[in-house]
Amino acid sequence: MLEIRCPYCGNRSQNEFAYGGDATIKRPELNTEVTDQEWDNFVYYRKNPRGNHLELWHHISGCRQWFKVHRNTATHEILKTLEMKENL
């Protein structure tokens, strides 16, 4: 079982969380010219690394906050958790 450190509640069991996917994807800026390719990259294309991955999790059965988790996709080791406003 994964033990995830919610930045607000501390270490909690994986059962309390929902996954939110890759945290590095950036939606194209509003009010700018966006090519089809840029939009496709945002919607569909992923780096999908084997190794460290920055991702979103939601403490859905706890404080209901979204936050970032830096986790290794090959070993499942959690390196760091961050609030949404923080960067690695």
């Binding site: 079982m1 994964l2 069991s13 059962n15 996954y19 996917g21 890759d22 991955h53 991702e55 499942h76």
Partner: peptide
């Protein structure tokens, strides 16, 4: 299991 993974193993939940 519901999170990106290249591990050929999962978790009990």
């Amino acid at each position: 299991d519901g999170y990106n993974s290249y591990a050929q193993r999962g978790n009990l939940p």
